[in-house]
Design a protein around this nucleic acid. Sequence first.
RNA 1: CGGGGAGUAGCUCAGUUUGGCCAGAGCGCUGCGUUCGGGACGCAGAGGUCGCAGGUUCAAAUCCUGUCUCCCCGACCA
Length: 579
Amino acid sequence: MRYSRMLIPTVKEVPADAEVASHKLMIRAGLIRKVASGTYIYLPLGWRSLLKIIAIVRDQMDKAGAQEILVPAMHPVELWDRTGRSADYGQTLFRFTDRHGRESVLGPTAEEVFTSLAAGEINSYRQLPVNLYQISAKFRDEFRPRFGPIRSREFIMKDAYSFDAGPEGLDQSYKAMYDAYCRIFTRCGLTYVIVEAEVGEMGGSGSHQFTVPCETGEDTIVYTEDGSYAANLERAAVDPPPEQKTNAEVPPMQDVHTPNIGSIEAVCKFLKTKPEQMVKTLIYSTKDKVTAVLIRGDHDVNEEKLRLAVGGKHIELSDEQTIEKVTGAKVGFAGPIGIADKVSKMIIDHAVAAMAVGVTGANKTDYHIKNVVPGRDFPLEGENVIITDIRFALEGDTYNGKKLLFKKGIEVGQVFKLGTKYSEKLGAKFLDENGAEKPCLMGCYGVGINRILAAAIELGNDKNGIIWPISIAPFEVLVTCVNQDDEEVAKVAEGIYQRLLDSGVDVLLDDRLLRGGVKFKDADLIGIPVRVTVGRKSVADGNVEIKLRAEPKIQKVPIEKAADKTIDLVNSLKEKLKL
RNA sequence: CGGGGAGUAGCUCAGUUUGGCCAGAGCGCUGCGUUCGGGACGCAGAGGUCGCAGGUUCAAAUCCUGUCUCCCCGACCA
């Protein structure tokens, strides 16, 4: 391609609404433009990179035995109602009504559609296993789209769904995808970590998340230094803290007047105590039941862990009315004393159970209680009392006695063992060799195509611009003709360009009638891995210059050897990515 | 949805406090000339319903009301 004919609108000024490096550079290098909040146009350079990522993903999926299909982005809402996810997904699900009044959703993922396909077409164990995938636009009405393409409302995802006859088969399918993902991310030039992940609203029995560590990531991964444990924050388990003992006998509970002081912070200031001495009592609701949740003042509830503690049901904070009804007090003054009888379950974080004494709400507006002793003043055992781990890990907590460390990252892929959640609800059943009807065991596997692009830029950039891994760079080689108006120079550049083209190299020729400085700045900004510089200076000596974007070194090469040398460099860069 | 901020030229922004001067600057764009290996310079030019709708006023980018959009922080989220 010729630069002079391409739409590559680079900009000097840093865009006002971009925060992170990848977002800024994608705009500056002319890869994307925003259309509306969370929706982006991919311009020629950006789209070329996405296509290369897609090609890598497709290649690896096909090699892993999966088959590509395409399903509609528009799904009838009934499918989502049948699995209950229409409600569970809540407002993140884009919905619309057509002229006949039929309600549809824009697919944020496609378990329902793939499973209903399997329900119709797969009837026998002889057809299993099967793994189907698509690469297509997905839609999520994010609460807050941000960081450009890292969290957008429309994005491209590769989603695969495996169907197996038994658990061993599922394990194999899962492993095949897991291994394919490792190859995909390696070939895309990413460094990544694999962590245990929570299954969330997906449902199922196990999951791994592929995350690219970088400062600007939205995900937090939790790991031990020795590498024996790694999980994402939603999942990360913590040890119960050692039981605290007090030497002295704790005096009886005592009400304290705390007018209009409801927040942990305010109460601590007022009572001159610390958040870790407080017990927060939160009222949660499932569909029809109310649960009291006790957690230490300095901890936060991990709703995924909480969801598991109540048997995997959807759970959310109760509304104000319910809280006031249960506690008999305004929001901010809930406490554990005497509440066990008023709720269906009382779930106590094990850090609370380990406390010797604490401060709690009094279930009385404007009052708190001092000298509360777990076990003495509220029950630690009983039919409806559960003591477990329901909080988010904090840096410095331990798991299996080892200190937990945190790292930020961008999630680029996740694999799930779904089991029979969807196949049962949507009737994806088959007859086994004994003629017995069984639901398929499913797995699902997602790759965020756009996020790979963003993550690669987060990892590969300097103050001058992007530094692409060659596998997903919009072009492999840039031939910069420094003096386009000099016939001799232009001819040399053109010759090298043609030879590279003929050899199948993905090459861009900067043939614009511009000053050298502008071309060099653009070259660094768009970050093509190999640059061949053709200018009067060196052509006079019969040479051109070859430079890698990632390295400062410039080497002079005779004109006639330039193309071959360039091809060698391209091949060695590809080799490093195991291509 | 709660809190904060912003909408003025293609882009980045000034002007709004205290209504009145022709609605401005830099970058980008067009033409001409000089320049030409790290975002050159000079001259000439094009480009704006000041987010939108009402209102107040002799007069509104500026004041008032409503509304839309975008960004940041938070809760939520594969």
